[in-house]
């Protein structure tokens, strides 16, 4: 076969391919041109008869024949298949399950921590983290907790053989950050804490807190309330408000407990908020000058607020989880719901 003849067959093949209207017709064209007894094997067979000089050109033309006709057939096939489906001729079952790997899910505790970081991040808080194995100094003494405070007991705190302990709160991170830099300090410190609680529906010996600290000139309790109110609305939804009740923590003075409006009933009273309309969320207050003294801050020049919240508690309230143990059982049927 001459090169011209090959080109001619190619053009014809492309035309025929273009003209077909059904898949069986197309199959006939395929057999005719590139099938086992079609033109292509003939063309390839012709290669051995070509003189060595022309062999490379012949090869190129033959290859082009194969590629052009082959892809024209493929394109037409796809076109007819698609058109066929549109015309209702196809038996393709569109209702079959889709095939692609699904997304996984973050643990609800992680979701709450990340959401908290995001919310406070918008206010300019950055994250600080610290060790789980802490010194008694950072966990208690620097936080103005006297050595005979009951929380230091073996019954409440996991003391280690090294004389260190598993931190009972994320507050020691405040101390570490303040030891390391001068004001302003604007941090949140999510992390894992440990207390010797026997596990039940609302207690867990291993739990998470997020702590916030802002130290600067002219920081007041009103700033704290505004910041927590912003967080409350971002985390729990619009219409959620904050109220303060006085409380006691060794490292803040004044100390408050912050309640959020119950987001389930909107404050009218329901089972979730035990009919009070409010849910206790955070412990907070103005940093005690005795704490500033420990880290070498001048409490005349600087004031600051600090707050701490239980992550599990927020997750439980927000997602309607009624038993803290679900969060650590890692039952796939539970986790799956947070995809």
């Amino acid at each position: 076969m001459t090169l011209d003849e090959i080109d001619k067959i190619k053009e014809e093949g492309l035309r025929e391919c273009d003209a077909v209207k059904t898949l069986p017709e197309l199959e006939a064209v395929r057999i005719k041109y590139i099938g086992r007894n079609g033109f292509l094997p003939q063309i390839m067979k012709g290669l051995k008869d070509v003189s060595p000089d022309e062999r490379s050109e012949y090869g190129r033309i033959a290859n082009e024949f194969k590629n052009r006709v082959g892809s024209a057939l493929d394109l037409k096939k796809a076109e007819l298949a698609a058109g066929g489906a549109a015309n209702g001729e196809s038996t393709f079952d569109y209702s079959m399950p889709g095939i692609w790997r699904g997304l996984g899910a973050k643990h609800p505790i992680s979701s709450i921590i990340e959401e908290t970081i995001r919310i406070f991040g918008r206010l300019g808080f950055t994250v600080a983290e610290g060790p789980d194995v802490e010194t008694g100094y950072h966990n208690f003494e620097a936080l103005n907790t006297p050595a005979h405070h009951p929380s230091l007991d073996n019954t409440d705190t996991f003391w280690l053989e090294t004389g260190e302990l598993l931190r009972t709160q994320t507050s020691p991170v405040q101390i570490r950050v303040m030891e390391g830099r001068k004001p302003p300090v604007r941090i949140i410190t999510p992390g894992r804490c440990y207390r010797r609680d026997t596990t039940d529906a609302t207690h867990s010996a291993n739990f998470h807190q997020v702590e916030g600290l802002y130290v600067d000139r002219n920081v007041s309790l009103a700033d704290l309330k505004g910041t927590l109110a912003y967080f409350a609305r971002e985390m729990m939804g619009p219409g959620v408000d904050v109220r303060f009740r006085p409380h006691f923590f060794p490292f803040t003075e004044p100390s408050v407990e912050a309640d959020f409006t119950c987001h389930v009933c909107g404050g009218k009273g329901c089972r979730v908020c035990k009919n009070s309309g409010w849910i206790e969320i955070a412990g907070a207050g103005m940093v005690d000058p005795r704490v500033f003294k420990k880290v070498g801050y001048d409490s005349e020049e600087f004031t600051g607020y600090a707050f701490g919240m239980g992550i599990e508690r927020i997750a439980m309230i927000k997602y309607g989880i009624n038993d803290i143990r679900f969060l650590y059982e890692n039952d796939a049927r539970f986790l799956q719901q947070f995809v």
Partner: peptide, 25 residues
């Protein structure tokens, strides 16, 4: 002094503390 500040805070009432609109810093 901070301990006295707390006495004022709790007897005067924490509901008197306004929630100041927070400022990003």
């Amino acid at each position: 002094e901070a301990d006295l500040v707390e006495e004022v805070a709790r007897i005067n009432g924490l509901d008197k503390v306004a929630a100041v609109v927070p400022q990003a810093k």
